[in-house]
Each structure stands twice: as structure tokens, then as C-alpha cells.
Amino acid sequence: MAITTAPADVAVVDDAAPQREFRRLPWVSFAVIAVLALVAVLAPLIATHSPTEQSLPDKLRPPAWQEGGSTKHLLGTDLLGRDVFSRLVYGARVSLTVAMFALLSGGLIGLAIGILAGYAGGRTDSALMRIVDATLTFPTILIALVLAVSLGAGLGTIVLAITVIIWARFARVVRGEVLTVKTRDFVALARVHGCSHVRIMAIHIVPNVLNTFMVLMTLHIGFVIIVEASLSFLGAGIPPPTPSWGQMVADGRSHIASAWWLSALPGAAIMLVVLSFNLFGDWLRDWLDPRLRQV
């Protein structure tokens, strides 16, 4: 090998430089996520009651371990006598379903726009990026609220609302990634061979940004769950009586002094799940795509 110029030897110890770090898999987060997924899928088997069945005589029962609680309602009952545990279990299902659809829709739109902007470059790029920037610096939750009010609450509406909120985050990162992939030789080679632009994007660009895309998806699960919960809390989510965690927190809010479990438990569930997804996402990013650390 010839002696060539390279950056100063300091680079050897540059800790800020992105490098693959083989961190251990965050087992606790992983376990929480696995349990959550299991609960969501098997909700009817795990829940002890119907999540919507009311029983006014049983209302506001505390959790089993508190005085006045019974094992019949493990985590107590709410204002209408519905079983909190069962509502939490079905709520997991709602949260995950919404998160999945919203991520897919927002993620794919962001992916498409990011690829288009990065690949096309020039005016298309700067126009699209201006829209992305405007979206990022705009409290898009306002648009989401208008959507909920005008279209009426429902799964479709909330997925659309979250899509509006998250697509730009995907577009921005994907576009940056495409810009670097685009300059690689195999893209130039493909063009020399007469590949069409669509084909180059599909065959050469997409597979190369897929890692980044997967990491971004994982990193955003927690965020999407929080957005969904916040929208539900504000009365713009999945309409009652379907249980959702955000709405459960909202319902219990005015009874916090007498029935702490109504708000505290679903809130804690949100926090735990989001925390787990975030830690898992951080790990995945460090493993698959450490350059994303700044995102």
C-alpha cells in the first residue's frame, strides 16, 4: 500500500466520531415491549372483564391491595364501574394499532418525499425542504385538532392527524441520507448503463436508506404513542367508549384526589412503554446507524 495522506492521527481517539458501539441489548426495555405486544394481541384472553361493561354499583373501587379493593378488580374500577385493568389491556391494543398505522403512513410519506427531494435535487429539493421546515416549526397539533373536529373522531382521523405531525421528521433525515447515497459510484454507474430514474430510486436508493428508515421508525414509536395519548387527552382521539390510555388519564383527572389510580396507572403505562421503545430505539440506532445520533 502506498503511503497516502490521511487525517491527523488524533482521529484514532475521536470519541465523538460515529462508531459502532456494541452495547448490550436493553433487556428490560425489550421485555416490556414483548409483554406489551403480547397483551395487545391476546387482549381478550388476558382481560378479566369487558373494557366497556359498566356496573354503577361497583364504581370507584380501589386497586386490590388497597383497603376496600378486591381481587375481582385487580386495579380497581372507574367512575362507571368499568374494570381499570381490562381497560388498560385493551388500551394497549388501541395504542399499538394507532401507532402502527400512523407510523406506516407518516413514515412512508416522509420516505417518499425525502427520496424525491434528495434524488431530484435543485428546485424540487429546495421547495420540498421549505415545506418540511415550515412543518417542523409549526405546531402541527393545531392542524391535527382541526382535522379531528372537522372530520369527526375515529381511527382514520387520528392516523391522518399523526401523519401530518410526523412526516416531515422522516422526510428531512431520509433526504440527507439520499444525498450521500446519490453521490456513490454505483448510482453513477447505473445511470451510465441507462437505468431510468424510477428504477435507480427503487433499486439503488431505497435499499440503502432502509436501515436509516427502520431506525427512524423505531425511534418514533414512543413519540407517536405520546402524540396519540395527548390527542386523546384533548378529546381528539379515538372516541369513547373504546378505551385509550390518554383518554383514561383525562377521565380520571377530576377525581385525582379520591381515586388516584384512574389517572396514575394509564399515565405510568404510557411512560413505561414510551421509555422502553425509546431505549430500544437508541440501541438499534447505535447498532445499525450510529450517524443518526444527532437526530
Binding site: I3, T4, D9
Partner: peptide
């Protein structure tokens, strides 16, 4: 060559190792 320790030697003189 790069990585032979030239810069590290220099930084040592100034006591400015990373």
C-alpha cells in the same frame, strides 16, 4: 505516516493530549 504518533508527540509537548 498517519498514525505514527507525530501529532501525539507534538500535543504531548504542549500537554494537550485529548
Amino acid at each position: 505516516e498517519s498514525g505514527s504518533g507525530k501529532t501525539m508527540t507534538a500535543l504531548s509537548l504542549l500537554r494537550l493530549l485529548p
